[in-house]
Simulated assay, not measured.
Amino acid sequence: MDENALDLRVRRTRKLLQDALLNLMSKKSFQAITVQDIAAEAMINRSTFYDHFVDKYALMEYTVSQQFQEQLMNKLPDRNHYSAENLRALITTMWEYFGGLHGRCQHGDEQERMLFQSQVMNVVKRVLTNWLSEAPEASTGDQSACELAVAVMSWAMYGGAHYWSENKPQGTGEELAERLIPILNGIPHIQRLMERP
């Protein structure tokens, strides 16, 4: 079989599984959903499910990561560089995605939301790592400075979004970004990156 056709078939099957999972999660908790439920909803057999994912957790992680990454890539003005505009897009997309979890996980619990959020954080860390690889410290071999900046920024963004959801539930992602960007730009590593011509 042609490799492109195989790849298309894999993507189509994974999309069916993602849609099935999200549809089921709008009706009941993730914990109550079985692999058999997902396979039946996607109209495939269980062995096909296991050809793609080891369990429902792997499917959930893949689904969240893919959805958030697609949503983010559609909003970034320039995907490969650190800028205030890109940072604003990253923060607002994260806020919107976290806010949307309440709609997608109506029957979910805190553990379920944490699983979703950890996948979003993984994407955020990858994006920030890519952006910060341009920093002077990255070219001089001080990788720990970049890693620390990524950790601080991603957790600051997560903490800001969590605070915002509890204290400003009607607030927007743009408002959150306006408050967070000056804080994030105050990190010395980021200041040096922003000062570059």
Rank of each mutant, 00 (worst) to 15 (best):
D55L: 07
R88S: 14
N80G: 15
Q67L: 14
R46C: 04
S144I: 14
W95M: 03
T93P: 05
P136I: 06
L16Q: 15
M94V: 06
F116N: 03
A138G: 05
L87H: 03
S139E: 13
F49A: 06
S47M: 13
V123F: 03
M60I: 07
E147L: 13
G171K: 03
G186M: 07
H189M: 14
P188G: 02
P197M: 06
P77Y: 09
V64I: 15
S65H: 13
E41W: 04
F53L: 07
I183L: 10
V64G: 07
D78V: 14
V120Q: 02
A151H: 13
E41C: 09
N167L: 12
Y163W: 10
K28H: 00
M94D: 05
R79M: 12
F68D: 05
R14I: 03
R104M: 08
N23R: 11
L90T: 02
Q119L: 02
E137H: 10
Q106L: 11
F116A: 06
E61L: 05
E85T: 12
G173S: 07
A89Q: 09
G173Q: 05
N130S: 11
C105F: 14
G100V: 03
L176K: 02
N23H: 11
Q143R: 15
A39T: 07
L128I: 03
S165Y: 00
Y62D: 15
T13E: 09
Y57V: 13
E147G: 10
Q67E: 13
I190Y: 03
V54E: 14
E195H: 10
L132R: 07
F116H: 08
H52S: 08
W131M: 06
D2F: 14
G186P: 01
Q191I: 09
A161M: 08
H102Y: 13
N74M: 14
V152C: 08
E137P: 01
W164Q: 01
R104P: 05
T13I: 13
E166A: 09
A89W: 06
L72T: 04
D55C: 05
L21T: 09
M94K: 03
M194H: 04
R14F: 04
A135C: 08
E96G: 10
L6K: 15
K27H: 09
R88N: 13
Q69C: 10
S139C: 09
R9H: 13
Q18F: 13
A20K: 03
G103E: 05
V152I: 14
G173Y: 01
L17Y: 06
T48K: 11
